[in-house]
């Protein structure tokens, strides 16, 4: 594993820790899209089916279990915790899951490496992850007040896939030039979706102002 991949994983983990910290410490999930969080649960469930069929490393297995456990607990807090659920911006979080999930599933049926259940679901999870942030970005745009933890959460979540892009370039040149179009292009789309957010996040940070996205 190279340093870019590790930095990507750690950024991803840190983003989730920040989100859980926000929810647990402030007993609030304002500004967080339940739609996006539920999509991440689907992403992890469909991608990590190989937990049962193949062993890669202790690191890999542990991280997969952590991502599954934390994403499920975030959804649990937002749906069922009696204080947290009252802070959920339900009226603003209106993006429909199936607008994203169904096209991604159809695309995975058409474009994949191998027509097996595990491989098609893995491919689906890659496509879905690329667009799963959209409900969150829409909600941020509708929020007049984006708190620091939420802003940092989304920033780190976007930075993680950008670091994976560098990791893929590095792996291409250091590991027998293996071409993997599905994750590469999906990862590129995923990172591009954050471009606008990155711009305003960095601008607000440089000017020491509160983060706000133009409507």
């Amino acid at each position: 594993m190279n340093v870019f991949r590790l930095a990507g994983d750690m950024t991803h983990l840190l983003s989730i820790i920040i989100l859980l910290l926000k929810i647990r410490a402030t007993k609030s999930c304002t500004g967080i899209s339940l739609k996006t969080q539920e999509l991440y649960v689907i992403v992890f469930l469909t991608r990590y089916l190989d937990l049962f069929t193949k062993y890669i490393s202790f690191y890999n297995t542990t991280m997969k279990l952590v991502f599954l456990g934390t994403s499920i607990s975030i959804v649990w807090y937002m749906r069922y915790h009696k204080v947290v659920k009252q802070t959920y911006n339900k009226d603003q979080d209106t993006f429909r899951h199936y607008f994203l999930a169904i096209p991604c599933f159809l695309l995975a049926l058409l474009i994949h490496h191998e027509f097996t259940v595990i491989e098609v679901l893995w491919t689906f999870s890659i496509y879905l992850e690329a667009v799963a942030i959209l409900p969150q970005l829409v909600l941020l745009q509708r929020s007049r007040n984006i708190d620091n933890l939420t802003g940092n959460y989304v920033f780190l979540l976007g930075a993680y896939r950008a670091l994976y892009l560098v990791n893929w370039v590095y792996r291409y040149f250091t590991e027998n030039h293996l071409v993997r179009w599905i994750p590469w292009l999906s990862g590129l789309v995923q990172t591009t979706l954050y471009a606008d957010f990155f711009y305003y996040y960095i601008k607000s940070w440089k000017n020491n102002e509160k983060l706000q996205l133009p409507a």
């Binding site: 991949r5 491989e119 994976y164 993997r180």
Partner: peptide
């Protein structure tokens, strides 16, 4: 690129 890539990433 030959065969199915092993998914060793997260």
């Amino acid at each position: 690129s030959s065969g199915v890539p092993k998914h060793d990433e997260l």
